[in-house]
Computed example of a mutant assay.
Amino acid sequence: MNWGTKIVVSFILFVGLIATMVIISMRQDVSLVAKDYYVQEIAYQDQIERIKNYKGLGDNQVKLKYEVQTDKIVLILPKSYAGKGEVHFFRPSDASLDARYVLKPDAEGYQHFHASDFKKGLWRVKISWHENDREYYEEKTLII
């Protein structure tokens, strides 16, 4: 094989490699974490205030536990909770698995979720509520 043929073969292999890389990169999902990302970014100062209000609760903060024995996720709210809110189970790797629930704790402040309703792996649990003209927000990490 002479040097001219080697150059042509090298060029064809290079073009094949680049074409393969383009095809692979075109098939990757590059969606944003949230569809309204830019709107959320603009309103983030309000989010900072919600987080600040939450941290001001002191010992009355929200707790989240995964109980393996009962296969339940337990959300523990302050007993004084009397507001309205939402729990958002956010799956960073697949938005189609996200779930939202209304906060409905029992008299002791507990709210239970069946872990079997959720795929195993990493979840971010976003808890937001308003009470007494104040808004609160907390985000917890959960591994099922």
Rank of each mutant, 00 (worst) to 15 (best):
N53A: 13
P78A: 03
S80T: 09
E49R: 08
D36I: 05
V68M: 15
M26V: 04
I76F: 02
L122D: 15
L77G: 06
D94I: 02
Y101N: 05
I51P: 07
Q28M: 08
L97F: 07
Y66N: 08
V74S: 00
R124Y: 13
S80G: 06
G56S: 01
D106F: 00
D46S: 14
V33C: 10
K52R: 15
I23D: 06
L77S: 02
I51E: 13
R27G: 12
R27S: 09
Q28S: 14
S93D: 15
Q40H: 06
L75D: 04
M26R: 04
S96N: 04
A34F: 15
V87N: 11
K65Q: 15
I42P: 01
I42L: 12
G56L: 01
D106G: 01
Q28I: 15
Y66E: 04
G109F: 10
S31H: 11
E67Y: 12
Q28K: 10
D106W: 04
I48F: 08
D29G: 06
D36E: 05
K55L: 14
E41K: 13
L122V: 09
N53M: 06
G83K: 13
V68F: 04
V33F: 11
I51L: 13
R124P: 04
Q47H: 13
W123F: 09
A107L: 00
V30N: 12
E49I: 11
Y110T: 08
P78C: 07
A95G: 06
N53H: 10
D36F: 03
T70F: 07
E49D: 12
S93P: 02
A43T: 05
K35A: 13
V30F: 11
S31I: 01
L75V: 11
G56A: 05
Y54E: 07
L75R: 00
A82N: 11
G83C: 05
V33K: 14
K79D: 09
K55E: 14
G58V: 03
K120P: 04
A107T: 05
K79W: 07
Y37E: 08
S93L: 06
G109Y: 06
E41N: 12
D94Y: 09
Y81L: 00
T20G: 12
I18P: 04
V33H: 14
D46Q: 13
A34H: 14
A99Y: 10
L57K: 01
L77D: 01
D106P: 01
L77I: 05
K52F: 07
M21W: 03
T20R: 10
R91Q: 10
E49Q: 12
Y37C: 01
T70K: 11
M26G: 09
V87A: 10
R100T: 14
Y38N: 14
K72L: 15
R91D: 13
Q111Y: 12
R50C: 03
F118Q: 10
F113P: 02
P92D: 10
R27D: 09
F113H: 00
S80L: 14
D29E: 15
